[in-house]
Design a binder for these strands. Structure first.
Lengths: 189, 189
DNA sequence: GTCTATAATACGATAGAC
DNA sequence: GTCTATCGTATTATAGAC
């Protein structure tokens, strides 16, 4: 998957292609187990070419994390502009599901899968942690108890969970998404 | 943390010490980012000494996975001997919480944190996958819908979630555990 | 922008002395 | 059972030609 091996080395979006190849590899085999040689060969260039577009391997992952942060920012901005209520929180979860069905979902999955690798990257550890906290915060009632906070986190996990893997649950992707929304609505106070 | 740096190189449980040091390192920094040199130095020996007790780095992680599997087996055996009912499933979750409060929890956390590294280890990928499925299976009603299956997985996640990290939820560890049990009871049909 | 070539380093793993 | 010493390999990253 992912690559295009040979030929087709004509387009001028090498930087973007590197990001896409890296996203795929990082998600499937992990950041540590992915070498720059693999990424380069996926698009038919050499390692040195990759180093023209990114100063380091870390910087590739960092660029993906920043894209995720930017996408999430829009969602957070919307939520912060609302008056907190249960209906707003449920709408936030619906919007999160919609957003993570697209490209944002792939990046979030990559970030999630490589949480440990990111934890030892000074340039991104704070960013990842901050956005996780922010998402929890806007989805949680202001006066929430410990149990209510935990409920919110589980609701978010339900949404994110069905966006990848989970095919072994059976049913279609749409059915799984609807099930996750029902559970989220049920678990949130 | 974890280590004892120098001195104290007297006891005859080097194999166990290697496992403990590896468990700690693998959990905190990840399997890939942990070198055998680090593990060896944690207990004040050399890499070569580690290779006397384990044939490879993989074998260390493998030994931890097998210990986890053995601990889980007891839980699964109990569950399989019961007549499926909601009360039995809730009791299973209580027993899971109790088991994962002890040493099993540390190993499960390590396995969870290194899911991606384990996925590329032929010797353990099947074992991990099998035990995850088995745990889901015994906790799920025989005729469960997609939504009910998802609910069971979330209940299990709630239990495992509060067993590590989650300190930022506030409250004591016991309070978080009780909250998780209440949510599990609430989310399970 | 992409190449070839290579430096510098760290790793997993082994051999053989003690 | 632990040591010293080392092998072979792969990696990240750089220098300089084109």
């Amino acid at each position: 998957m992912a690559g295009q091996a040979t030929q087709t080395r004509r387009r001028g979006d090498t930087r973007g292609e590197i990001q896409r190849a890296a996203l795929s590899r990082f998600t499937d085999q992990g950041y540590d187990k992915t070498s720059l040689r693999e990424i380069a060969e996926d698009l038919g260039v050499t390692k040195a070419a990759v180093y023209y577009h990114f100063r380091s391997k870390e910087e590739i992952l960092e660029s993906l994390v920043r894209e995720m942060a930017d996408s999430l920012e829009a969602l957070l901005d919307w939520a912060r502009a609302q008056t907190p209520s249960r209906e707003v929180r449920l709408e936030l979860l619906r919007r999160l599901a919609a957003a993570t069905s697209g490209g944002l979902g792939d990046t979030m999955r990559c970030v999630q899968q490589n949480e440990l690798a990111l934890a030892s990257m000074p340039s991104t550890v704070d960013l990842v942690h901050r956005y996780k906290q922010e998402l929890w915060k806007v989805a949680t009632p202001p006066d929430a108890t410990v149990e209510q906070k935990l409920r919110v986190r589980l609701a978010i996990m339900a949404i994110l969970l069905v966006n990848h893997g989970s095919a072994d649950l059976g049913g279609t992707a749409a059915e799984r998404q609807e099930a996750a929304q029902r559970i989220a609505a049920d678990v949130i106070i």
